[in-house]
Design a protein around this nucleic acid. Structure first.
Lengths: 115, 115
DNA sequence: CATTCATTTAAGTTATTACTTAAATGTTTT
DNA sequence: AAAACATTTAAGTAATAACTTAAATGAATG
């Protein structure tokens, strides 16, 4: 049940919005760096650095085709994140399922929920 | 459902392993800070700071009971993370479903997959 | 084979993060 | 009301992150 110890880099890797966008772009298929970079306002060196983080986390792989490096999404690596959130699923579904939302009411009256 | 809500990055919040452990602990039920802190080797001030990050991300709420503050897991906030990984699910399942794992083989032969 | 093109690595800067200890706040107990 | 307890906030530090520009590597092309 304790998923915290496994490959901590994946959560870290996916924490950056630019890296998530990179993964999203790669869902459409393998792309070379320059093409990925065209979607961002940062240098290609920065893109390359982000891709390195994703690579080391196992979230992408790279394939050399001539002078281009095609990056491939490796979605299987995301199962770890998925599985961790999955254990919470029954809780949020449980809560939403209760007609009349008794629990929510109680939570809202008892709870500060400050920012 | 409510995507307008200010969401001080949930992905960021769950990137830290101590914060994930905090959430995991809270799955068993609301807990005051000192009790959560007992599971870690860091100061209570640090725990409190982590809880603040989780609070601002909407991942926990707090309820004042006397001199204690009970923190509650707010699992619904994790749907956002879950949903994002969900779009990758069909891809990893697709891949794993292929008997003989043709694609995996090809990926392994074509691909550098360096660290 | 020298140049160009694609990408990576190096080196430096700035902002943020995860912690620490000490002081501040608020609550309960005596 | 003072002392004890639970938690938060403040202030400081060291490590890391996300970027930058410039130089290095490596493949393709003229």
């Amino acid at each position: 049940m304790n998923m915290t110890a496994i490959t901590p880099d994946i959560f870290q890797a996916v924490a950056d919005p630019n890296r998530r966008t990179l993964l999203d772009l790669l869902l459409d298929g393998p792309r070379p760096v320059q093409e990925l970079g065209a979607h961002f306002d940062i240098s290609l060196a920065a893109i390359s650095q982000h891709l390195k983080v994703l690579l080391e986390a196992g979230l992408v792989s790279r394939e050399a085709r001539g002078k281009y490096r095609y990056y491939h999404a490796e979605p299987a690596a995301l199962q770890q994140v998925h599985d961790w959130t999955e254990q919470y699923r029954e809780f949020w579904e449980d809560r939403l399922d209760r007609l009349g939302g008794y629990l929510d009411q109680q939570a809202n009256s008892d709870t500060e929920t400050e920012t």
